[in-house]
């Protein structure tokens, strides 16, 4: 009986201490007020382009390839499609030939861009834009391209002694995306 009474007293004392610790003191109580917004959504844009067959569906991550036989020049049209949500002010082509040829023995590549996408008898309606001629295969376009837009490109080589396959990759860096903007609303 005595033992039970002692246990009860100990439990009561423990509870009292816990209550003192858990309940904030009157001195610490402070009124607070808050103003909360509704959920606001912020989204980032995207930038990227890909080469695709003329008029064909673009597939992200896929290179465009074209082959030619020995002793025949290459003349291949393809499209470049803006897959992003931001307008582009340019992009870079890397055209690699396989098998690779050393330095000056590489096929000389010429890239011509048709912004309207309408070639007719080898000429671009509205005027074509030459991206140059070289053996490195690196070309840079500064032709704007709206989201979802496409234009046509022709890559060509003169007569060449070997057969080869050209692989076209399209790179888009931050510099190829529209300039940053400041909006107030």
């Amino acid at each position: 009986m005595m033992k039970h009474t002692r246990s009860a007293s100990a439990v009561a004392a423990l509870l009292a201490v816990l209550l003192l610790l858990l309940v904030p003191s009157t001195a610490a109580a402070q009124t607070r007020a808050a103003a909360r917004s509704a959920v606001a959504v912020t989204a980032a844009g995207s930038w990227g382009a890909v080469a695709a067959p003329v008029g064909g569906a673009p597939v992200a991550g896929r290179s465009f390839t074209a082959s030619t036989s020995a002793f025949v020049g290459l003349s291949q049209d393809f499209d470049v499609v803006n897959l992003g949500t931001l307008p582009l002010v340019g992009h870079t082509f890397q055209i690699r030939t396989d098998p690779g040829f050393a330095g000056p023995r590489n096929p000389t590549l010429t890239v011509v861009l048709c912004p309207t996408g309408a070639w007719k008898a080898g000429r671009c309606a509205g005027g074509e834009v030459s991206l140059g001629t070289n053996t490195s295969g690196n070309f840079t376009s500064t032709v704007p391209l709206a989201p979802g837009g496409r234009y046509s490109v022709n890559v060509s080589t003169p007569w060449y002694w070997g057969a080869f396959t050209s692989t076209v990759n399209v790179s888009v860096a931050r510099d190829h995306v529209r300039a940053a903007t400041l909006t107030n609303n």
Binding site: A33, V39, A43, G48, V50, R62, G84, N169
Partner: peptide, 30 residues
């Protein structure tokens, strides 16, 4: 920041195409 896409594919950990929902709470005390 600089992110380069290749054939329309963004690098791993890209910020591109991302979206966040934000709830702003301003609080004051007496």
């Amino acid at each position: 920041q600089s992110e380069t896409t290749l054939n329309g594919v963004a690098p791993v950990g890209t910020v591109q195409g991302g979206s966040v929902s934000l709830t702003y709470s301003f609080t004051e005390a007496q």
